[in-house]
Design a protein around this nucleic acid. Structure first.
Length: 241
DNA sequence: GCCCAGGGGGCTC
DNA sequence: GAGCCCCATGGG
């Protein structure tokens, strides 16, 4: 699955091998993560907004509340008042702004595809990404989560864990913007939605387990991936998974 | 009591 | 374009 680097250069082949090795080690360590935990593409979209700066456990509570209230559909959410919506998603934090964001999403769905998410498959990934980015509350990470997990598009999702792990492993030299981090993966891996899905989920799993903001992840299962990581694992004590 | 968690918008300079 | 501040709860 990972044996064809998109770039034919020596560096490209090297990075492809490195990223392949990271993936294999993480998969061997943690196994399949079965992401995204949503029953429908629409639920994934709503979850992508609710999870902004919030742990998934609280998102689950908010999603359960929406379902119990019978509001897990674009039409029902459009008809709900912002106050009611905010109250239901309360556990996920930032409930007022997130209610506004969900409202913006369902308004867009109604106007763009008459709530028929499957019809979005006819729209090119680039165009769909631009359209979604124009919706209030949908930024780069959220749009890529929606494209990958709700629409099955081969787009790599970059989050805080991705940046942190890449930085700790010493691969983030010069990478700064979201697009640069994303290109690091997308330029050096085959564009495969299933691969990107699992890769991102594994990074989050690793990040949660060993890579706290103030700690080094050099001692995790990727410790021997690169000299920098190895150096860190020798130099710093880090909880092993 | 403090810090962090699967961000994004708006404002200022 | 970069740097801040704000939005807010729940768990460790």
């Amino acid at each position: 699955m990972l044996d064809n680097a998109r770039t034919g250069t020596q560096d490209g082949k090297k990075l492809n091998r490195l990223l392949t090795e990271i993936y294999r080690k993480l998969f061997a360590r943690y196994g399949c993560q079965h992401w995204w935990p949503g029953e429908t593409p629409f639920e994934v979209m709503v979850g992508a907004i609710l999870t902004q700066s919030c742990s998934w456990i609280n998102v689950e509570k908010a999603i359960a509340s929406l379902k119990e209230a019978g509001l897990m559909s674009p039409e029902a959410l459009r008809n709900a008042t912002p106050e009611k919506l905010a109250a239901l998603i309360h556990p996920s934090g930032y409930y007022n702004v997130k209610a506004k964001k969900i409202k913006a999403l369902v308004e867009w769905l109604g106007a763009d595809c008459r709530d028929d998410i499957s019809s979005l498959s006819k729209v090119g990934t680039g165009e769909l990404r631009r359209e979604l980015l124009a919706v209030y509350g949908i930024g780069e990470e959220t749009v890529d989560s929606i494209l990958l997990y709700a629409c099955g598009r081969p787009v790599f999702v970059v989050d805080a864990y991705t940046r942190r792990i890449l930085t700790r492993l010493g691969f983030a030299n010069g990478l700064k913007s979201y697009g640069e981090f994303q290109a690091f993966f997308m330029d050096n891996l085959p564009h495969d939605a299933a691969l990107f899905n699992e890769y991102h989920a594994l990074f989050v799993r690793l990040g949660k387990e060993v890579c706290k903001k103030t700690a080094s992840c050099g001692g995790c299962c990727l410790g021997d991936i690169c000299p920098e990581a190895k150096k860190q694992s020798e130099r710093l004590s880090c909880r092993r998974p």
